[in-house]
């Protein structure tokens, strides 16, 4: 199946690395990294120091690899890559004496947009990230969440095909993080922009990406899809009242249930089993104090890959 963007255009590999090596003194930050990233949104996951930011900087031409080759959107020419890529660094990178509006216009002009288009695009993109009311304020007066949005806006202002985001939710409060993740999902799902984001938070990637690449000690240790998983168990139940009696009730209705340390373990718990648990709890007057998914396939895989 060939991938296409939100506008039906064929999607090329956002990033293709072949045997990338990058060392800093004695530290081998990237160790023969070979990977191809073509999903609409891909997450780079890894612990601090795993090589995520280094891989992004090599892809953007900010660092020169010691060995290997990297292609971005199928291109190796830096001028062409610059025109088609947006970048949101993790660190603070905004000129504090400019407004978000001026910054977006300035960067759009530097990326080759005519003045009239730069003005229009700046308004559009600031509206898209929710900064339209604050766009004339100096960045120096922005909160951290607003600065993150301004960073995202400048990355989008020239209409890139690929946007590279380094820890986009870093430092945000829960509400700001949720809003940022929604914007990021909107980019790849509705606007057809390929997204490559790094994070050390699996949940961020689960909520925004279609694929995850796990880096550990400068190597790619796993690459797999983030699919909309239907839970099939196992599930652990904690009930008020007699747990053994409720486990027996479940068994009577054909649901395999084991009593383990005062809790009920359902080795298989698809939608049918879960509905039966709900109905039987209601009919027997048993309270369900917790029902926990005891397995997360992606998390297990990632933890295994990062170990």
């Amino acid at each position: 199946m060939s991938l296409s963007d939100g506008y039906g255009r064929p999607m090329t590999a956002a990033l293709a690395c072949d045997g990338l090596v990058k060392t800093f003194g004695a530290v081998r930050a990237l160790d023969r990294v070979t990977v191809s990233v073509a999903a609409p949104a891909t997450g780079l996951l890894g612990a601090n120091g795993a090589g995520k930011s280094t891989l992004m900087k090599v892809a953007l031409g900010l660092l020169t690899p010691d060995e290997g080759e990297v292609r971005v959107l199928g291109l190796t020419d830096r001028t062409q890559i610059r025109a088609r890529v947006g970048y949101m660094p993790e660190h603070s990178c905004l000129p504090t004496d400019m407004s978000a509006q001026d910054l977006c216009i300035h960067l759009a002009r530097l990326r080759g947009l005519p003045r009239r288009d730069a003005l229009r695009r700046a308004s559009e993109v600031l509206f898209a990230v929710g900064l339209e009311e604050e766009r004339h304020r100096l960045i120096d007066t922005y909160s951290l969440g607003m600065r993150q949005r301004a960073k995202l806006a400048q990355a989008l202002v020239h209409g890139p095909d690929l946007v590279v985001l380094d820890e986009p939710t870093s430092g945000l409060d829960p509400a700001g993080r949720t809003e940022m993740l929604e914007i990021l999902r909107h980019l790849s799902r509705d606007l057809g922009i390929q997204v490559l984001l790094s994070s050390h938070v699996l949940e961020d990637i689960e909520r925004t990406c279609d694929e995850v690449v796990v880096l550990a000690s400068g190597r790619v240790s796993a690459q797999q899809a983030v699919s909309a998983r239907v839970s099939t168990g196992p599930v652990t139940l904690q009930v008020t009242g007699d747990a053994a009696a409720f486990a027996g009730l479940l068994q009577e209705h054909g649901i395999t249930a084991q009593l383990v340390a005062g809790r009920i373990l359902l080795p298989s718990a698809g939608p049918r089993e879960l509905a039966a648990v709900r109905d039987l709890a209601a009919s027997s007057g048993t309270g369900l104090s917790s029902m926990v998914d005891a397995a997360n396939a992606l998390e297990d895989a990632v933890v295994g890959a990062m170990a």
Binding site: L62, R82, V85, Y87, L107, L110
Partner: peptide
Amino acid sequence: DRVLSLYFSTA
């Protein structure tokens, strides 16, 4: 302000 990474990566 560390703006150079913005300029040199995409501008």
